[in-house]
Simulated scan of single mutants.
Amino acid sequence: MRWMACELHSHTYHSDGRQSLLELAQGARALGFDCVALTDHNTMTGLENKELVEQATGMTIISGMEWTTFYGHMVTIGLIEFVDWRPAGPRDIQAGIAKVHAHGGIAGLAHPFRIGSPMCTGCFWEFEIADWNAVDYIEVWSGTFPSIKTDNARAFRLWTEQLNAGYRIAATSGRDWHAQDRTEDPVSVTYLLLDDSEGSETERAVRALAAGRASVTMGPLVTLALRSETAVYGIGDRVPKQGQGNGFYAVATIDFQVRADKWAFPGAGYSLAVTSNLGVIGEISAHAAQSDYRFDIPGEGLLWMRAELKGTVRGVRTTIAFTNAIYLDPGEGV
């Protein structure tokens, strides 16, 4: 299995972007990405030369589309063909998500708390979700330097609330990339853990996100594992009730070498925490000279856990990276 650096929200001139697919892929490659999802608004025509662009750039391009409606924007990726967004009304988004799933795609809320009409039509999520089990992921970080934006903080809280309610929903970042404008802001990356089974890289990337095997960062890659003498569970895994018992502990790992020439946070003063539905399990200072950090796990009541890396960036103490969750079936003990 290996981690793939992905940009999961982008546009070309086939919707409101100011770049071709080739320019998008070249720009993503220059920033150290391995793949990019093209999610033009309500169209998939920008994917016409997908294979040629992949051959020219070495990038994996994931097919997708951003459903852009009056009631919210929904990013769909992995689609094998166009799925009509127009019937989606405020109370029937479930039917739209079901159609996306039926056509090989997965669906996520895009920037759910961004300012809406009239500044950005439909950008604020207003669809009624009858069953959160249908939602594959939430874009909790949108734009550049995403961790300091208040609308993203609300999206992150929404994701946490759904985890606390027992739902298994992934979290991603998306630049909502429209043009090859230079930025000095930190750029976030969604790393997806690809399995070794059959299928194209695109299929394995979509499968990884659907399974919640994702870690989001503006800098180093943070991963998390739950270990005992006899078992190891990673990000996105579910620990069955019968597999829970004494002796489990968490190990968070920080890789400071990923895309190391694309980011720098001097004087960050990193702190690493493992958080859960019970709150913070443990927190420790972290630094580039050490990669693995062990955390003891409480004995009961856990539904999920994730790792979070914080540090000072441009004078602001903020979250730099976070993992998706490891899930634990309800039961006494870990």
Rank of each mutant, 00 (worst) to 15 (best):
V206E: 12
F295I: 00
Q244Y: 00
G219N: 10
A289W: 15
L224A: 05
T217R: 08
G212Y: 01
L272A: 00
D292K: 10
E283C: 07
L278S: 03
T323G: 06
T312W: 03
V189Y: 14
L278E: 05
G279I: 07
P220D: 08
A321H: 00
Y233H: 14
W304H: 13
W304E: 00
S215P: 10
A307V: 06
D292W: 01
G301I: 00
P220H: 07
R227C: 15
V239G: 00
T190W: 04
V239T: 01
I326W: 06
E198A: 15
T323F: 07
G245F: 02
Q257P: 00
Y233F: 15
A268H: 09
A289T: 15
S215R: 14
V280A: 11
G267R: 06
P240Y: 02
A268P: 04
T190P: 14
A268K: 06
T275M: 05
Y233D: 05
A211K: 13
E203N: 06
R207M: 14
S291M: 15
A252W: 00
P220S: 12
E332F: 13
S276R: 02
D292E: 13
P266N: 07
Q242A: 12
S228F: 12
W304Q: 04
Q242P: 02
L194P: 07
E283P: 02
Q242E: 08
A268F: 08
E198I: 08
G333Y: 04
L209Y: 09
V280M: 13
G212V: 02
A288C: 07
L309F: 10
V274T: 03
